[in-house]
Amino acid sequence: MIRFRDVNKWFGKIHVLRDVNLAVEPGEVVVVCGPSGSGKSTLIRTINKLEPIDAGQVVVDGQDLSDPKLEINKLRAEIGFVFQQFNLYPHLNVLANITLAPRLVRKVPPREADQQAEALLARVGLSEKRDVYPSQLSGGQQQRVAIARALAMKPKIMLFDEPTSALDPEMIGEVLAVMKDLATTGMTMMVVTHEMGFAREVSSRVVFIDHGSILEEARPEEFFRNPKHPRAQQFLKQVLSPMH
């Protein structure tokens, strides 16, 4: 579904992605973790070409992102993206946030789009919020709307870029619950997160990245029980310690 081959990227002189090779199969839930500044957000943002790469190849759903004939808007419509800061459209109410892309990109008739949006709102537990504006919602609620917004496009892949990092601790659970629920439906997901509980319970694979290189790639039970790379060990110690 997603394939990285020898991907390299620089921000000026900083080498943010080094020889990245990775494959994500349909239905997989891959968690990407690593210290801040490790390049994990950049990695996930290359998948829908929010960040272009400098060398190598990224193939998504059979399409090479460096192909000049690539219709990027069509491909992006197939990829849901959930941001750390939610990025809901502040001038639109919840329902309109969700229906905007289906109506304009997928050309779904307004009434049908509304019905789908209401179903998705029910799924993320926010049916009663359909007419309010994003600024009237808590962070957790906004993120759940953002997930519903991404799902409204009926994507083949869902990407999450630190979806709970900007949330107060008491709201993290509600967002993770929605994501877990989504994972059980067989959605292909790639999640950048520090939520090791989520990784352990839900993911099919954990990818550890530091200084732009993938240092370890393992099934979650193996990664948590027996991390091989010293930096992965150190990282796990930090994030799992109750004192952190």
Binding site: N48, L50, N73, K74, R76, A77, I79, F81, F83, Q85, N87, L88, Y89, L100, A101, L104, V105, R149, A150, M153
Partner: peptide, 20 residues
């Protein structure tokens, strides 16, 4: 990020500009 969010949803630059 508003532009990023809109482009991620598959909007063209102009539609994202106009609607978001």
């Amino acid at each position: 990020e508003q532009m990023e969010a809109a482009r991620s949803a598959g909007f063209s630059y102009l539609t994202a500009m106009r609607r978001v």
